[in-house]
């Protein structure tokens, strides 16, 4: 479905107001890709019709659906691979050593989308660090979208999704097939507390974290919001904890209290002078 400039401008404004996500000119394709399925399922003939109805949407239900559709990400298991190699080989072993006396680890995936990232991390921990079985693991995964939170809790994936980045060996071990879909096993689902959280809004009281995954989400926000999010992440991070951003994201010119770790393409940061 094609998108005219006026409707793009209107939808961008609404999405920005509701979620602080910036849709610059040139992102028309993204709006078309995300809203065409919604327009179809809501019985609109075009995105223009959908936009017209949004203007009359007093209760805000349709607008909420549009914002939800626009803030959902395409993703895969083990996305970009490098961060997970660094976690497996360096960061998790280091954190285990440092937290040995308390036997407690706290992890937050800040933009869990449909759950591939938190479940990747859950598989990585279960598969490689059996000693954590006796630890207290506080594992929170949050997303702005209620639909995504529900999806994450169910842990159900289509064949297309299960094919994306998931080693076959782990699929066999940690998923069960239900008809045409694949569901992650209960023991992994129960590891994670899935919550709704708008990164650009007011954050609830959260524990301090050893590890924060905040990958490929800052790119959607304007500069003041990026700064605010990075500051709040820092405040919720143990001084010797780690943050992962997307490979193309940076704290540079946004927050000078972070330093990038020298791990190949992993987007790993920690707080400066943490030692």
């Amino acid at each position: 479905m094609a998108l005219n400039p006026g409707d793009f401008e209107y939808i961008s404004k609404i999405v920005r107001e509701q979620s602080a996500i910036v849709l610059e000119k040139g992102k028309e394709y993204l709006v078309e890709a995300r809203l065409t399925p919604l327009a179809t399922s809501e019985n609109f003939k075009s995105i223009a019709d959908l936009a017209q109805q949004m203007k009359r949407d007093v209760g805000g239900k349709l607008i909420a659906k549009v914002v939800e559709a626009m803030t959902t990400n395409e993703t895969s298991f083990f996305r970009d691979i490098h961060p997970f190699e660094v976690l497996k080989n360096t960061i998790i072993p280091e954190l285990i050593q440092k937290r040995e006396s308390q036997k407690k680890l706290s992890i937050w995936c800040g933009a869990s989308s449909s759950g591939q990232e938190p479940y990747t991390l859950a598989m990585l921990l279960t598969e490689n660090f059996p000693q954590l079985k006796n630890w207290k693991i506080d594992f929170i995964a949050s997303d702005i979208s209620t639909e995504m939170q529900k999806r994450c809790q169910e842990g159900v994936y289509s064949q297309l999704e299960i094919n994306r980045g998931l080693p076959a060996m782990l699929m066999v071990k940690y998923f069960q097939r239900n008809g045409a879909q694949w569901q992650i096993k209960p023991e992994l689902r129960q590891m994670i507390d899935f919550r709704i959280l708008n990164l650009s809004g007011r954050w609830p009281l959260m524990p301090k974290f050893d590890l924060v995954m905040m990958r490929n989400v800052l790119i959607y926000f304007d500069v003041p919001t990026k700064k605010e999010i990075l500051r709040k992440v820092r405040e919720n991070l143990y001084p010797d904890g780690y943050v992962f951003l997307g490979a193309a994201e940076t704290t540079l010119n946004l927050d000078d209290k972070y330093e990038r770790m020298n791990f190949k393409q992993s987007g790993c940061y920690r707080i400066k002078d943490c030692l």
Binding site: S76, F78, I81, L160, N163, R164, G165, P167, A168, M171
Partner: peptide
Amino acid sequence: NEYVMKPFTKEMIAEKLTL
């Protein structure tokens, strides 16, 4: 070593090759 269920995409194949 790996298993892809058809239909496949270029991205799927690329991700499995990386693994």
